[in-house]
């Protein structure tokens, strides 16, 4: 485990300095056939329909899916555009909603880097950090030689991005020819998929309270602050839930 203890100084040939083993790239790509990947792609099937309804063009959506690559941010952006939100309320909401990318990246980097990995390699690869690939690679990393981990992660991540973009684009283009009830069903996948997966990925008990409060306060705030209701409801719900966490759960609050 010397590589974990002192990742920047180990230079034994076993770890190959900064020579990645790209044969793992294809192994990573094949994980596109796993269940979590299929669920994620079906979430983007719903997203394609939502994006169309919110008024963004197909090219804007094709840009947005890979460039943002975080479904909560995608949803915030199209909900904001649909509701006519200004940049001043939308950007802070996305910033706050995607803070989780930072600890996720911090947890992954020590697992996939090599002793002499360039920082720009890691900056580029970090773009693929999002919940599905992240959970999967953290779980599988111990079974993969260190030199193969970054290629494996990139292979899986790139396949997820391409499949999701393709799925969203096909639905966007085909939406007009679907009966309305089919479209309604497709739109509905994303909210329920997200509600359940967020519930499963929460780390503290009071985080479930945060989810409930956000769900209730977001719409409630629409009566007071119609253009910033998501931001206002989300912040209020998060702070309230944190207060509850500190008062009742802080000793044993971990799930």
């Amino acid at each position: 485990m010397t590589d974990n203890a002192n990742p920047l100084k180990v230079e034994s040939p076993e770890f190959g300095g900064s020579v990645y083993d790209w044969s793992w790239f294809r192994t990573g790509m094949r994980q596109i056939l796993s269940l979590p990947a299929l669920i994620l792609v079906s979430g983007f099937i719903g997203f394609g329909g939502l994006a169309r309804e919110s008024g963004v063009s197909v090219w804007e959506m094709i840009y947005m899916v890979p460039a943002i690559w975080a479904l909560p941010s995608h949803l915030l952006v199209i909900a904001g555009i649909g509701a006519g939100a200004s940049l001043v309320t939308l950007a802070p909401a996305v910033i706050l909603a995607s803070v989780r990318m930072m600890p996720m990246t911090m947890a992954l980097v020590p697992d996939i880097r090599l002793p002499r990995s360039k920082t720009w390699h890691l900056l580029a690869v970090s773009h693929l950090v999002a919940i599905t690939a992240w959970v999967h690679v953290l779980q599988r990393a111990p079974d993969i030689p260190r030199a193969g981990r970054l290629p494996y992660f990139v292979g899986f991540g790139v396949m997820l991005v391409m499949s999701s973009t393709l799925a969203a684009t096909l639905v966007y283009e085909a939406a007009a020819s679907f009966p309305p009830i089919v479209m309604a069903g497709l739109y509905f996948i994303t909210p329920i998929y997200f509600a359940t997966s967020l519930w499963n990925s929460s780390r503290y008990r009071a985080e479930h309270i945060a989810l409930g409060l956000g769900f209730a306060l977001g719409p409630a705030m629409a009566m007071i602050l119609p253009e910033a209701n998501i931001l206002a409801g989300g912040i209020a719900g998060g702070i309230l839930a944190y207060g509850i966490h500190r008062m009742f759960f802080s000793q044993s609050g971990k799930r």
């Binding site: 329909g49 939502l50 169309r52 309804e53 919110s54 909560p72 949803l75 915030l76 909900a79 649909g82 509701a83 909401a93 706050l96 909603a97 995607s98 803070v99 989780r100 600890p103 309305p180 009830i181 479209m183 309604a184 739109y187 509905f188 994303t190 909210p191 997200f194 509600a195 967020l198 929460s202 780390r203 503290y204 009071a206 985080e207 945060a210 989810l211 409930g212 409060l213 956000g214 769900f215 209730a216 306060l217 977001g218 719409p219 629409a222 209701n229 998501i230 931001l231 409801g233 989300g234 912040i235 209020a236 719900g237 998060g238 702070i239 839930a241 944190y242 966490h245």
Partner: peptide, 27 residues
């Protein structure tokens, strides 16, 4: 980071609610 995590979760729940309470189109 714990506080930030709570706010982030609550925000995403508010987005989900937006699509359920104020949907557009077929829904």
């Amino acid at each position: 980071l714990v506080l930030v995590r709570f706010v982030a979760s609550s925000l995403v729940a508010a987005v989900i609610a937006q699509f359920v309470f104020f949907p557009s189109g077929a829904l």
